[in-house]
Design a protein around this nucleic acid. Sequence first.
DNA 1: GTGATTGCAAACTTTTTGCATCCGA
DNA 2: TCGGATGCAAAAAGTTTGCAATCAC
Lengths: 161, 161
Amino acid sequence: MSVSQEEFKELLKKKGLKVTNQRLLVLEVLAGHRDRHMTAEDIYELVKEDYPEIGLATIYRTVQLLLEMQLVDRINLDDGCVRYEIGQDTDGDMCGKHHHHHLICNTCGKVLPFKDDLLEELERHIEEETGFHVVNHELKFYGQCQECREKENKNGKHTEV
Amino acid sequence: MSVSQEEFKELLKKKGLKVTNQRLLVLEVLAGHRDRHMTAEDIYELVKEDYPEIGLATIYRTVQLLLEMQLVDRINLDDGCVRYEIGQDTDGDMCGKHHHHHLICNTCGKVLPFKDDLLEELERHIEEETGFHVVNHELKFYGQCQECREKENKNGKHTEV
DNA sequence: GTGATTGCAAACTTTTTGCATCCGA
DNA sequence: TCGGATGCAAAAAGTTTGCAATCAC
């Protein structure tokens, strides 16, 4: 469940920041759509349902705040806008790392999540070899999803690449 | 050496596209700076030295073309603009895959390349498990480079995270 | 009450597009 | 010659910023 609303309020107070309706709603919307990768505009539209007077700038400012507090992750699917998703493992002592990659279909644009911890080995390897201390990573795979492959095969098109 | 200018000309002709000075120069600039990750603006400034009348739109159009021809890779360092680099392994039969990741220092912003083929195993695993056929990947590690870690240690600041 | 937060509009940045002109084949 | 390519300027799209009004504490 990552962060509860109560924990979020505590975190804000601890930082000397104010607990506002807008902030609670943005977190709530993100928590309520953890399966989706939401753009600022997406969040804006959803928060507006409960709080029509909110401004888009507030969404940007709040999301920035949530990023700094390590409560959300930021992903860029190269479709022109940055997306946010609530941390999958914000509880525990995992230092904000997310072990969850994205499979992006070149054909239909669908984004599938994929869980894997293999990268930890690679991170150790990097630290040994280069002295670079890895805190986080972002891994995207581009290709073609099963559905699109089947559709193409059905249409007689030979699978290329 | 990825693609030679002659090979590029051939590829253009094969696609029914025209060989223009602008296209040659953009490729030349990218080939001459394979150590850097260049933005469209970077390329623009450099091409202008040889060809002052070029327009920024042409850079964008050419880079798009080079991407489609799989001659350059595109990376997004989340600093507001997309960057391009000439393929490291465009020769051979590697289908455009690049086995070259980026280590991005959160402290100084430096970007270090890191070569590794470990991901092939993971790609096989994904295909088996999800049916998603991986064609390409982009992997970024965020953290702190050796230099910045040393600097912080020297200043007595304890390394956190 | 006071300073942080917000909403609005304007500004900014990067990238794309329309169109007349130009140029390679 | 002719259609693709270019340069320019305008448009588009996403995000940030300045500022007065508002709200949490």
